[in-house]
Amino acid sequence: MNTRQKPGIFIFGKIGQNMEQQEQAAKIKEKAFELGFLDCGISKADFLSEEKSRLERWLNQELHGEMAYMARNVEMRLDPRLIFEGAKSVISVLLNYYPTEKQLADDAPVLSKYAYGKDYHFVLKDKLNELLKFIQNEIEPCNGRPFVDSAPVLDKAWAAKAGLGWVGKHTNLISVEHGSFFFIGELIVDLELPADNKTVRDHCGTCTRCIDACPTQAIVAPQVVDAQRCISYQTIELKGELDQSLQGKFEDRVFGCDICQDVCPWNLKSEPHREPDFEPHPKLMALTRNEWMEMDKPLFNELFRKSAVKRTKFEGLKRNLEFIDSASNSD
């Protein structure tokens, strides 16, 4: 006896399954927007073949500096199934951090916009955990894990694969609708969801504003950054002495750098965030240059108790302040 399903029944079942998955994906995205995310996209959890050669070339050229962790677990970075067993889908999200206000003193040391408020690792991870609970309770029981710069996951690659934007010449993800001042996070789940099979084409064209504006010439080629020349790397990642050859080129950046994003035409679309946790400490935006330079540890702890700036610690921030101050005094 032929026990195969009749073709019609098989096709109907598959269509029904696909429709259900599409509805699940739509509900997940709806919840993501409800949680305050700018955008949400879904990819199939598989090997990032297109990223392999790019990542290996960057590492082989030793453009990662002292970030030795970038050279570890390369296969994991390229395949989420090696990080999370049973992974089937990668849900990528964007969270706006474009500030509602700016530092008041024109000559004050400049803090990267992403560090104004509460450390984004906690804010974004909390929201991703809420999204995971929603999926488990309202969509389908499953296992999942949120990722926010805490494991070898290529955030920008997954976001681009999910159709949330393209990687610009400065290596940041750019969204047609929102610019680039946002955090990227992932929720990897063992639930099969329909992938957003769309690719946002590169809209940078012949524009080189980010490359031209970088004061340390860290963008050595389109989509290639020499971390050792990057102000963000120098002021955050580097643990020892700052590169003296870059003296006078920081443009008063003291923690991170937004220059390549500030000059990007796509960021004319950036709108202030609505996330209370990203609001700065009341004293922070009014600090004068002298107050920055004379900062002691109690004030540092008060201003940055829950901030990403704690990553560099008080000693690291003082090192950065002294570096830009000595440069201005020698002019």
Rank of each mutant, 00 (worst) to 15 (best):
F10W: 13
N18A: 05
Q22P: 04
Q22V: 10
L38N: 06
S43Y: 06
S43R: 04
E56W: 03
Q61N: 11
N73H: 03
M76T: 04
R77S: 02
D79K: 00
G86W: 02
K88M: 09
L95D: 01
Y97L: 07
Y98T: 08
E101N: 14
L104H: 10
A108V: 01
L111Q: 05
K113V: 00
Y116H: 12
G117D: 13
K118H: 09
D119N: 14
K125W: 09
L128K: 02
L131H: 05
K133A: 14
I139G: 01
G144V: 03
R145F: 08
F147G: 03
A151R: 02
A151N: 03
W158Y: 06
K169E: 07
K169G: 10
N172C: 10
N172G: 11
L173E: 07
E177A: 09
G179L: 04
I184K: 00
D196K: 10
K198P: 00
R201P: 03
D212K: 11
V220M: 00
A221F: 06
I231L: 02
I231A: 00
Q234Y: 05
G248E: 02
G248W: 08
D252K: 09
Q261K: 15
D262P: 02
P265R: 05
R274T: 12
P276S: 10
K283D: 15
M285N: 06
A286L: 11
T288S: 11
R289D: 01
W292T: 14
D296M: 12
V309W: 05
K313Y: 04
E315C: 07
S328K: 15
N329R: 13
D331R: 11
